[in-house]
Structure formats: structure tokens, C-alpha cells
């Protein structure tokens, strides 16, 4: 997001070759949305699980579900679908664009900000761990699949139950080496929760995995929570403290009131801390921004959240889920 402008809606591009599990993942995102209003733009409604009881309104192109999620059929191009969602004034928190199996996600991700009101959150490319090595060296499609992975900030190695531990580790290592800027997750049956969408990292231009601290374990599942506070704090100190602790904290993002700088945007990815001052006052619709509210994402394996207690006390943070 450009600092000083109105917040725009994050768009995640979901790529992956035929049969990798894009639809399963989308269905899982919808199931685990937990209050996030997701707009899902798909090639066809056929394979998306839409519980008829949840349908509020539907037309040929858009199905609105209770709980705020919306499914939209692409009908040729994602740009017109995004514009339609925007122009209908549907309130959303995140939009997912399902790219076709042979689409290159890079050009789509680059085109998203051409449409007013949206920015690119990330490219997620899902691959079938059993076939990815063969796909990447396929005589015809190898360069296409390689490009799908190279554009991704997150690569999900799906169907990891289909192969043994040794082979899985080998393939994940290969993916990690080949696609340095991506975070590699492995999962079975597309079971990655929607909280991963809060990563919203494309704009940060992460170029190497050293930003990801600690390294992501296989079968990574996520948990997310919100820290809020009432008074302005020393944002830089908080950021450094959070980045130093590790403890499976992947991503922190939120608008804060800094005691010295005033309104800032704090972003943490692994050990990277970025604090940007908001140089023009957010007038008019500025009420859309909630200050002193940090969205945090961590590995679910971090069961003991007790070590945050001292930090919460020091900075006056209240945790809510």
C-alpha cells in the first residue's frame, strides 16, 4: 500500500497447475475465514463448495454468502470481476483470484494495482508434491510451472501425505533452493488456514528466505490473533522486540500511534521490521483505519503463548483472537 493513500483491498493470486489442489485450498479458505469477508473469484462455480443454506443472494455471476464471503465467476478476465465487486460496493477484507492452471500469476499480480482500490497481497502457488519435480522438468510445461513458482511469495506443497518423509524433505529442500524468495509450506489436502492471507507481503519485496525466521516447519499450520492497545507506544522498540523473539512469529502488521512519530504503519516479516510514517493525514474516510491494532500470524505449533505475557505487559497490549 502506498503510504498516505487510502487503504486498498488486498488481492491474493492463487496459482497452480491443473490438479495441484487450488479448489480444495479455496474451499478450505472459505471454511476457515472466521470473520474475514473473502471475495473469491473463480473460473467456474462448479467445484466450489457452496452451502445452499448460506446463500443470501445469487445471480449468474455473484453469489453472496451469509458471513460476508462472496464468490464471483471470472467470465473471461479477473479485472472486470474485481471492478464489479468494487462497483457493487460489496464490503470485503480480502480478494482471492484463482488463476487458470496454465496462467502466469506474475502478470496478474502486476495488473491488480492497475485497478483502483486494490493492491496485490501475494501470489500463492500450490503444487502437488508428488508430481512437482516431473512438472518442473516437463518438456512442454516445465518453464510455465517454474514461472508459477518463481512468482510466488508462498508455495504450498500439497498432498504431502502421498510420499515418504525423506522424499518430502528432499523436494522441499529443492523448492527452497530453487525459489529463494518464497516461503515453502507443506500440507495434506490443502489444509492451510485463511489466516495466511493476512501475510500481505508482496509489497515488501522479500528477496530471500533469511527473512523467514524461524524456518517454517513442514505441515505448518497457522494461528493468528490481534494485539491492541489504547495509548501511543514506542513502535520501534515494540517492533524490535517482536522481531527478536522469534517464537514462530511470521508476520505482524498494523497502524499504530507512535509516541514520537504519530501515525505509522508497522510491518514485520520474520526479522525484517519496517516502520513507515503516514505523511498525509487520513481525512475523509480515515475512519476506515483502526489504529493501535496489530494483526499477528504465527505457526500453530507455538502452543505456549505464555512468553508473550511480559511483552504484553511492557507495551500495554491486549490479545484477542
Amino acid at each position: 500500500m502506498a503510504i498516505g493513500q487510502m487503504p486498498s483491498l488486498p488481492v491474493t493470486v492463487l496459482a497452480g497447475f491443473l490438479g495441484a489442489g487450488k479448489t480444495t485450498l479455496l474451499n478450505h479458505f472459505l471454511k476457515t475465514a472466521r470473520g474475514r469477508r473473502l471475495g473469491v473469484i473463480v473460473n467456474d462455480f462448479g467445484r466450489i463448495n457452496i452451502d445452499v443454506d448460506l446463500i443470501e443472494t445469487a445471480n449468474e455471476r455473484i453469489i453472496q454468502l451469509s458471513g460476508g464471503c462472496v464468490c464471483c465467476r471470472m467470465d473471461g478476465n479477473f479485472a472486470s470481476a474485481l471492478m464489479e465487486l468494487r462497483d457493487r460496493g460489496i464490503k470485503l477484507d480480502h480478494v482471492l483470484v484463482e488463476a487458470s492452471g496454465v496462467a502466469l500469476p506474475g502478470p496478474i499480480a502486476r495488473a491488480v494495482p492497475l485497478i483502483e482500490g486494490f493492491h496485490t497481497a501475494m501470489v500463492i502457488t500450490i503444487v502437488d508434491i508428488e508430481t512437482i519435480s516431473a512438472r518442473l522438468t516437463d518438456r512442454f510445461m516445465g518453464d510455465l510451472v517454474g514461472s508459477q513458482c518463481a512468482s510466488a511469495q508462498v508455495i504450498i506443497a500439497n498432498k504431502s501425505d502421498l510420499i515418504g518423509d525423506t522424499l518430502r524433505k528432499l523436494i522441499i529442500d529443492q523448492l527452497t533452493q530453487s525459489f529463494e524468495k518464497a516461503m515453502i509450506l507443506s500440507t495434506t489436502a490443502g489444509q492451510v488456514d485463511a489466516s495466511i492471507l493476512d501475510l500481505d507481503i508482496a509489497g515488501l519485496n522479500i528477496t530471500d528466505t533469511s527473512a523467514w525466521s524461524p524456518p517454517i516447519s513442514a505441515d505448518a499450520l497457522f494461528t493468528s490473533w490481534i494485539w491492541s492497545c489504547t495509548d501511543p507506544i514506542h513502535v520501534e522498540r515494540l517492533g524490535n522486540a517482536l522481531a527478536e523473539t522469534g517464537h514462530g512469529l511470521l508476520r505482524v502488521k498494523g497502524f499504530m500511534q507512535d509516541i514520537r512519530l504519530g501515525p505509522v504503519l508497522l510491518q514485520i516479516v520474520g526479522r525484517h521490521v519496517q516502520i513507515a510514517t503516514l505523511n498525509s493525514p487520513l481525512s475523509g474516510n480515515g475512519d476506515q483505519i483502526s489504529y493501535n491494532r496489530l494483526i499477528c500470524i504465527a505457526e500453530k505449533s507455538v502452543k505456549d503463548l505464555g512468553h508473550w505475557a511480559e511483552l504484553e505487559k511492557r507495551f500495554g497490549l491486549v490479545r484477542s483472537l
Partner: peptide
């Protein structure tokens, strides 16, 4: 250049 810039313009 390309469908991703042409379509938003045309729309």
C-alpha cells in the same frame, strides 16, 4: 500491452 492492461482500460 497485454490483456491485463487492455481490459481495465477498455472497461
Amino acid at each position: 500491452r497485454g490483456i491485463e492492461t487492455m481490459v481495465p482500460t477498455a472497461m
